[in-house]
Amino acid sequence: MNQAQTDADLVSASLVGSDAAFSRLVDRHQQALRSFLRRVSGNEADADELAQEVFLAAWTKLKLLRSPDKFRSWLFGMAWSMNKTFRRSAARRRARDEAWQDLQPRTATPQDELRLALNKAMAELGEDQRAVVALCLAGGWTHDEASGALDIPLGTVKSHVSRGRARLEQILGDGHER
């Protein structure tokens, strides 16, 4: 399969039955999708599981994609929607998992501590703001791309980025004490 093919080309090939084309779409977007879901959910295991479910849903719903050139936004929008549903339905399981984790011995490195502080700070942001910050600040998305993927007005995205950055700086401070 040609490495330079666009997402639209790969979607079209997938729609006529090319498993290899869809596999290429997964290869192209899975790392960014997993990173986004990890940031908005704060739980790496749940995010990885959900990413697999998102790609499965994308495969089964690909024929519903109206603009093949917008595959990435469609995929991340689906991930955002599925994340919200997943989080609502998995509250008890997460509570049980967190209780188990609390019983485990702590051997954190400074990098782990920074990641945990950032995850905790991200969790203090509102749900929409957390998603926008994860895409724009951590994922390198443009405000317009995030607006399209999350179905949030562009001005709101810009506001969430600005306020989210300020809030994270306030929460984390200089020493990341929180």
Rank of each mutant, 00 (worst) to 15 (best):
M1L: 11
D7E: 10
D7I: 07
L10F: 14
S12E: 07
A13T: 06
A13I: 12
G17S: 10
S18V: 08
S23V: 10
L25W: 06
H29D: 06
Q30E: 13
Q30P: 07
L33W: 06
R34M: 03
R34G: 04
E44S: 08
D46A: 15
A47K: 01
A58I: 00
A58E: 00
L62E: 12
L64W: 11
R66H: 13
S67L: 10
R72T: 11
G77P: 00
A79F: 06
S81D: 12
T85A: 07
S89C: 09
R92E: 14
R92L: 06
R92Y: 05
A95E: 10
A99C: 04
A99P: 03
L103C: 02
R106Y: 11
T107V: 08
T109Y: 09
L114S: 03
R115I: 03
L116E: 09
L118S: 02
L118K: 00
N119F: 02
K120R: 13
K120P: 02
L125F: 08
D128T: 13
Q129L: 01
A131F: 07
C136A: 14
C136I: 05
L137N: 07
H143E: 15
D151H: 12
R163L: 02
L168Q: 07
E169H: 07
Q170W: 14
L172V: 05
D174C: 10
E177G: 10
